[in-house]
């Protein structure tokens, strides 16, 4: 399939290229909506579509004013700041708790393993609106509604399943005799953890942390219910903007976030390669 043998019949040849074109169209469908907002975010007008000047590639049709607005508008700046205050704390909490639990779960003898696993994974499965509604009432009662820590805890719990999954994946190939070897040489459990286990599962931990970070950084449903004005995050501001006044500043923000995802994606890919190298899994 990947390459066409020279003896291929005309029909096979036609099908081969048709198939490639279909796949090309699907790839186009996947990335076009994301890429199209980048040129649009440089629109000199307050419109959401290409102006004739833009299509004619006239420099007058382009401007960075929406970016200037994003970086000078106090609403957006506050939202950006809030996002960067909430996401790292939530990530830290999720990563520490999630990594410990993943190590625990990877032990050979864990009672009620599948039940525990189901509970720990549930934040990823339960529809967000149900979680948000529940948290809204419950956190109100304990005084966490509308507080920084309320949002952080909610975001952390939503991020933990990702940490568990990625760390568990790196632990699958982990040879437990390494731990025993370290222990037999007199290393305590803590030393063993940091000297033997940690370096090997680190890629999983970091990619889990990235997932937890992006979960918090993108999350809007829970924060809409749980947050108050002082916790307004970037997605919240975008949601309001989309529903109420679609200013093209949203497209500038969106473009910045696309660039951010490209960076995260690259980091993840590098980590994945490193992890495979460390665990001796050679790519096929």
């Amino acid at each position: 399939m990947s390459s066409l043998p020279s003896y291929a019949s005309p029909l096979q040849r036609t099908w081969h290229y048709t198939f490639r074109i279909i796949c090309g169209l699907i790839f186009f469908f996947l990335v076009f909506p994301i890429l199209v907002i980048i040129p649009l975010s440089f629109n000199a007008q307050d419109f959401f579509t290409f102006t004739p000047e833009m299509l004619a590639l006239d420099p007058a049709g382009y401007s960075t004013k929406h970016y200037v607005d994003f970086f000078t508008n106090p609403d957006w700046q506050k939202a950006l700041k809030n996002s960067f205050m909430i996401a790292p704390t939530a990530t830290l909490l999720a990563t520490v708790l999630g990594t410990l639990a993943a190590i625990g779960l990877s032990q050979p003898h864990v009672p009620f393993r599948s039940v525990i696993m189901a509970i720990l994974i549930s934040p990823m499965i339960v529809p967000l609106i149900i979680a948000a509604a529940g948290m809204y009432f419950f956190y109100s009662r304990i005084g966490l509604q509308g507080t920084y820590w309320g949002v952080v805890m909610a975001h952390a719990v939503l991020g933990t399943p990702f940490v568990i999954i990625t760390v568990t994946a790196t632990l699958v190939g982990f040879d437990n005799s390494l731990v025993r070897a370290a222990a037999s040489m007199g290393a305590g459990p803590i030393t063993t953890f940091f000297k033997v286990q940690m370096p090997l599962i680190l890629p999983g931990v970091v990619s889990g942390a990235l997932f937890a970070f992006i979960t918090s950084f993108d999350e809007v449903v829970v924060v809409l219910f749980l947050g108050s004005a002082s916790q307004k995050t970037l997605p919240w501001q975008m949601f309001i903007g989309l529903r109420e006044q679609i200013s093209p500043t949203i497209l500038a923000v969106a473009s910045i976030m696309v660039v951010l995802s490209v960076v995260l994606l690259t980091v993840l890919e590098l980590l994945r390669r490193r992890s495979e190298r460390l665990r001796g899994v050679t790519p096929a």
Partner: peptide, 30 residues
């Protein structure tokens, strides 16, 4: 070994039960 595994899992389990499962159960009771 079981105890060790459990001690490692417990913090997250408690965290998920308190910050996630309890609110949902609480709401469903309504």
């Amino acid at each position: 070994e079981k105890l060790r595994a459990f001690v490692l899992i417990l913090p997250l389990l408690a965290f998920v039960l308190l910050t996630f499962a309890a609110p949902i159960v609480d709401m469903l009771l309504r």
